[in-house]
Design a protein around this nucleic acid. Structure first.
Length: 209
DNA sequence: GCAATGATTTACT
DNA sequence: GTAAATCATTGCC
């Protein structure tokens, strides 16, 4: 179990920045913590993707203000969780100000707390290294569900923290996003960020620097 | 009201 | 490497 006393919850102001790409990059190395059913689980964020509601066709909210994407048009600092392929819950962090539909998809975390609970949620057959390596699997491991959409990330159910004992430089790698080929040229945007060499990154680096 | 589809994962060949 | 699973949201009738 990690020592939560050295973890500092990110303030609401962190999510208000107009630059969603910068936030996606800044979230690497932070800790995503959930308190579901009274059980704390947490993971270090090792992979993210940025989605921009105004100039990015891969974003669900691009030129579409619907029931599902409504939360993304709200103020930053809330959760956007959506069901993909009928099976997987994908966790996003809404950013920017009211009316700006930006979000950061958390694609992978490294488990740091509540490992046993994650194993139960994921099933006995799963290997430890695969507990949270992927946007659908990390949501399942942390107990994040579709109905958590709209959750305030400065509350006590789901939040993001930084370790005050850390803060050193991270070896951050950049690449194109995954699974958004339908978005045409927007799929080429280098808006995926991950920590180099971390075994929990969902998709391996495809090219050398 | 109804049919199409996806920011994925897993199992099988 | 390829294919199936599976359902809320969406767009059109």
């Amino acid at each position: 179990m990690i020592d939560l006393s050295t973890y500092e919850k990110l303030p609401g102001s962190f999510y208000i920045s107009p630059d969603v790409v910068e936030i996606a990059r800044a979230l690497l190395g932070k800790y995503l913590v959930t308190n579901i059913d009274g059980i704390i689980t947490a993971g270090k964020i090792v992979e993210t993707e940025a989605y921009n509601g105004r100039c990015d066709r891969a974003c669900h909210a691009f030129q579409r203000k619907t029931g599902r994407t409504r939360v993304m048009y709200g103020v930053g600092g809330r959760a956007y969780v959506y069901l993909c392929y009928g099976i997987h819950h994908l966790f996003n962090v809404v950013t920017n100000q009211e009316g700006m539909a930006d979000a950061v998809l958390v694609r992978a975390v490294e488990p740091v707390a509540g490992l046993e609970e994650m194993q139960v949620r994921r099933g006995a057959t799963i290997r430890h290294a695969k507990l949270t390596a992927g946007p659908g699997t990390l949501s399942q491991a942390l107990g994040i569900h579709r109905h958590h959409t709209g959750t305030d990330l400065t509350g006590d159910l789901i939040w993001i923290a930084r370790n005050t004992n850390e803060g050193g430089e991270l070896n951050i790698e950049t690449d194109t996003r995954i699974g958004v080929a339908y978005a045409g040229e927007d799929a080429l945007l280098p808006w995926r960020f991950f920590i180099r060499g971390n075994p929990f990154v969902s998709v391996k680096k495809k090219s050398l620097t």
